[in-house]
Structure formats: structure tokens, C-alpha cells
Design a protein around this nucleic acid. Structure first.
Length: 374
RNA sequence: GGAGGGGUGGCCGAGCGGUCAAUGGCAGCAGACUGUAAAUCUGCCGACUUCGCGUCUACGAAGGUUCGAAUCCUUCCCCCUCCA
């Protein structure tokens, strides 16, 4: 195991840990902003770091198409290329097997994609996906899998999961172990407990530096997602980090930490920020709505982000309405800052054995709703 | 003075005898967004409405032709272009 994971404290099933990567440590529970194409959209790398992020996600599929993995490698790797000196986790392309279902053909050996950029065919196998992630210099490499869509017949979920397990084994062989670098396996099996169990056992038998839970937050709803975590997480090795892929909203993250998850990534704070939605302690706000037109207050007077320290809701509303680029920038910044505030709060709560109290306060405040309009 | 082109819902702009409360776009009002084909997408957008239809008022104004007119005819009002 060349990726060290230290378990610092626990409170119930919740864990406080530390991952040491070749590009710095990552305090867990951790949220990883998504930087698909070598950029966390609408954010400068330094600003991403200032929110408290210690690791971002990059994407095999997108970087393979453009500018190309070999080109990134020749330019010194993804950290240097995007000027992000900290840790990077790369998705394997497995999500695109689902999200680009109209543009790909899947077979036992791998997946052929037709590029949405120029129509050219690209081939991704477990081995090539790992190789690309090496070329990108990812600190954490993800196994190539198929993110199983939902809803799905059990038979199809089983076939999909077993294919991903086969690919996980092939990826493990292709992975070049180095100090500070790690490979994660991804548990599939949709919402079927016995399939999740089969998948978890298959992965632990192979042995990975960390274990991800994939195929969730794809439409099944929070309750089913939590149920699936409750049956899956206990099957994962306690001494390895656990990553819930693609999740989620603040309440999803909090609930998953309570169930033993250590790492998260999600486009929600960045994408929603670009589409005028702000996440706050007291719930969600759509800054495009007319009710903010004359509101001189910040999104959240207790938030320390630049949007909240320097700008009114009225101004942010104006920027969004005017389609000024600063609008998406500031809202993305706010959302990422708020997400990292949550993670800081979760980590501190677990350290001080006050997790239950923290969650109660979190839920109470979220339920209270936005401040009344002026 | 002469010749020609126009006036359509908040704006721009299609339609040129029925299937038109009237294509589109913008503006406006909301909603969605979960390992990013996303600075994207969806719904509503004359009035009333039991929100399902329906009813009413509508395509510069007034008349007329027609079973039926935003669409054809007459007159009037206004705008634009070119020539004097």
C-alpha cells in the first residue's frame, strides 16, 4: 500500500482521517471539487485552494479527448499543466460509460466512445484507463468501471457489476505502484445488498489502496442511497479510505459521513453555482429569482467567502441577470467555500466526539429555511 | 409633389382566407441540476378561469366582401426608403 491512510478519530461510524499523497495530505472527511477538463470551472486554482480544498478531481475521458494524455504528460503532468500543486484524483471514464450511453459501445474488453467533440472513436480499456491516469500523474487512480444506471433489473446490475469487477482486477495488474500514489476499487451492484456484498468481497480479495462506492446518486433517492451505504460500508476494510462517488448535496454528504464515508466529489457546488444556485446553512437560494433584486444582504452573513464578504444578493442577482461571468465565478466560489465549511465542521465534530450534536444543529438550521425577505 | 415599402401580443419578428390566442427569438416568472457532452436544460408567459376545457377581447382605425379575415377590398391615420 503506497498510499498511507491514518485513522485519527471515530465517532459512531463517522471517521476522521488523513491521506498522505505524493502531492500533500488530505484531511478526511474530504470534499473534492470536480475539475473535469483540467479546471474547476469558473475558479482559479489558488481560489480553489483558499476554500480549503486539498484535492480535486480530474477526468480521464475528457483529458484523453482534449488535450490528450500523452500531451499532458509531456507538459509535466496534470498538476503542473493546470497549476494545481496539491493532490489529484482522476475518474477513470466509468461515469461516461453511463452518461454517454448514446455515444458508446461496451464489450467485455472495454468501451468504444464516439467523441462528442469531433466524432472520432476513442477506445478505453481498464488497462488504457489506468495508463492514462498514470500519464496525468494522478495521485489517486480510479478503476475503470461501468457506473450502473438506475433503475436497473437485478440481472443487468449483476452483469454490469461483474464486468466492473473483472476490469478492477485487470486495472490492478496495470497499475504501477509508487510511494504516495494509490489505486481505488469501485463497489457496484446498484441497490441490491447481495450484489454489493459480492462486489465488496471481490474488490477486497484483489486489494486496493481505497474503496469507492459507485453507482449511487443516479436517481434512486437519498433513502435508498443511505440504505445501500448501510449494507455496503461495513464490508469495506476499516484501514482504507472510503469514497462515495459523485455525491452530493450537503445533506447527502453529512448522512454519508455518518455512515462511514471519508471522501466525496460532486459537480453540484460548481454546476449549481454556474446556474445561479447558492447552497447555504439555511438551505438553497436561487439568485436568479426576482426576490433578491433589492436585497442588500449577503447570501450568508456568517460565510467568509468573497461573495459573502464583499457583495449583496442584489448585486449577485444583477450579475446573473446580466450574464456577467463574475456571477458564476462568485457563486461557485461561495458554494465551494460552504462545502468546505461543512467538511471542516464534520472533521472537528468527529475529533471532539460531538458528531451527533453537530448533525442535529446542521439539520435544524437547514430546515429553518432562508432568512425572510427584507 | 412623385414612386415604393410598412404598421402583428412588453420588444424584435413570422404568418398573408379556415387547422391562429397567432411560429421563432428576446425580455419576464418559476423549476431542475449528484464520479460535468452543462455559463446547461425544462415549464409558464393576452384576460378571466373549477387551470381541463372553456369563455371573452385581440394583428394601426373605421367600414366592406365572405359561411369564415391578422390575411382580400375601400377610406382614413401613422412610419420608413428613394426621386424631385
Amino acid at each position: 500500500m503506497s498510499l498511507s491512510f491514518e485513522l485519527l478519530a471515530t465517532d459512531g461510524l463517522a471517521r476522521r482521517g488523513r491521506i498522505a499523497t505524493a502531492h500533500g495530505t488530505v484531511e478526511t472527511p474530504a470534499f473534492m471539487p470536480v475539475g473535469t477538463a483540467g479546471t474547476v470551472k469558473a475558479m482559479m486554482p489558488q481560489s480553489v485552494a483558499e476554500t480549503g480544498a486539498e484535492i480535486v478531481l480530474g477526468n480521464t475521458y475528457h483529458l484523453m479527448l482534449r488535450p490528450g494524455a500523452e500531451r499532458v504528460a509531456a507538459l509535466g503532468g496534470l498538476h503542473k499543466f493546470m497549476n494545481w500543486p496539491r493532490a489529484i484524483l482522476t475518474d477513470s471514464g466509468g461515469f461516461q460509460v453511463m452518461s454517454l450511453k448514446e455515444l458508446r459501445k461496451i464489450d467485455r474488453d472495454g468501451v468504444t466512445f464516439r467523441s462528442p467533440i469531433d466524432g472520432i472513436q476513442h477506445r478505453l480499456t481498464p488497462e488504457r484507463s489506468i495508463q492514462i491516469q498514470h500519464l496525468l500523474d494522478a495521485d489517486i487512480t480510479m478503476s475503470f468501471d461501468e457506473c450502473t444506471p438506475w433503475p436497473v433489473e437485478k440481472e443487468d446490475a449483476a452483469r454490469s457489476m461483474r464486468l466492473s469487477m473483472d476490469w478492477a482486477g485487470r486495472g490492478k495488474h496495470a497499475f504501477v505502484d509508487r510511494p504516495g500514489y494509490g489505486l481505488f476499487g469501485i463497489v457496484q451492484g446498484s441497490t441490491f445488498p447481495d450484489l454489493r456484498e459480492e462486489s465488496a468481497k471481490a474488490l477486497t480479495a484483489i486489494g486496493f489502496d481505497g474503496y469507492a462506492v459507485g453507482g449511487l446518486a443516479v436517481g434512486e433517492g437519498q433513502e435508498l442511497m443511505f440504505q445501500t451505504l448501510e449494507t455496503t460500508v461495513p464490508l469495506l476494510p476499516a484501514d482504507r479510505p472510503r469514497y462515495l462517488m459523485g455525491v452530493g448535496r450537503p445533506s447527502d454528504i453529512v448522512g454519508a459521513v455518518r455512515r462511514g464515508i471519508d471522501m466525496f466529489d460532486c459537480v453540484m457546488p460548481t454546476r449549481a453555482g454556474r446556474t445561479a444556485q447558492a447552497f447555504t446553512r439555511r438551505g438553497e437560494l436561487n439568485l436568479r429569482n426576482a426576490r433578491h433584486r433589492d436585497d442588500p444582504r449577503p447570501i450568508d452573513e456568517r460565510c467568509g467567502c468573497p461573495a459573502c464578504r464583499h457583495h449583496s444578493r442584489a448585486y449577485l442577482h444583477h450579475l446573473i441577470r446580466s450574464e456577467e461571468i463574475l456571477g458564476p465565478m462568485l457563486l461557485t466560489w461561495h458554494n465551494l467555500h460552504y462545502y468546505q465549511d461543512i467538511m471542516r465542521g464534520l472533521r472537528a465534530a468527529i475529533e471532539t466526539q460531538s458528531f451527533g450534536h453537530w448533525i442535529a444543529a446542521f439539520e435544524q438550521e437547514q430546515g429553518r429555511g432562508d432568512l425572510p425577505p427584507l
